[in-house]
């Protein structure tokens, strides 16, 4: 059992543009449909707005902008992945939510050196799944807009 637990990781997966991404499921608090966000003028581009999550005010970050991807088409309402980071709870705007999947540790590989430098810190690496690559997102870095 202990061996199995060590070699398998669980990811909460989602899609952003053409990317298949995942965050360690232990960091995910909940997923939900997007709702009214209060915009924050003068904030970082990636900040989509503020969200009232049962009385707690949570900052919503658009992963498309954060990952330098083209803006989301108007007709595609985003979903929210609410994640716990060290600093606070953040909500990531994504295109669609996937399943929670188990992946074997040994399918992991760090990103190639040729990856765009602006996202190098955000993508920890990929898990090679049979049909596609699961990008592992560093939620901590993605939420830290100062870098």
């Amino acid at each position: 059992m202990a061996e199995a637990a060590a070699s398998v990781r669980q990811y909460c997966t989602f899609e952003v543009d053409s990317l298949f991404l995942g965050i360690d499921v232990l960091h995910v608090q909940e997923v939900m449909k997007s709702r009214d966000l209060a915009p924050v003028p003068l904030a970082h581009d990636a900040v989509q707005g503020l969200l009232n999550l049962r009385g707690q005010i949570v900052t919503a970050i658009d992963l498309r902008r954060r990952l330098d991807l083209p803006p989301r088409p108007e007709n595609r309402p985003p979903m929210l992945v609410v994640a716990r980071t060290e600093g606070a709870v953040v909500a990531f705007l994504v295109d669609a939510i996937g399943d929670v999947i188990d992946v074997a540790e040994d399918t992991f590989e760090p990103p190639p050196d040729t990856i765009r430098t602006t996202v190098r810190d955000l993508i920890v690496g990929v898990h090679k799944l049979p049909k596609r690559l699961l990008h592992v997102l560093d939620a901590e870095h993605a939420a830290d807009l100062a870098r």
Partner: peptide
């Protein structure tokens, strides 16, 4: 008054947020 998250703390124009 609720505090702002660290992503927004650096903007001096806001003192916080409220519901």
């Amino acid at each position: 008054v609720k505090p702002l998250s660290k992503q927004l703390k650096s903007i001096p124009v806001y003192a916080g947020a409220t519901i």
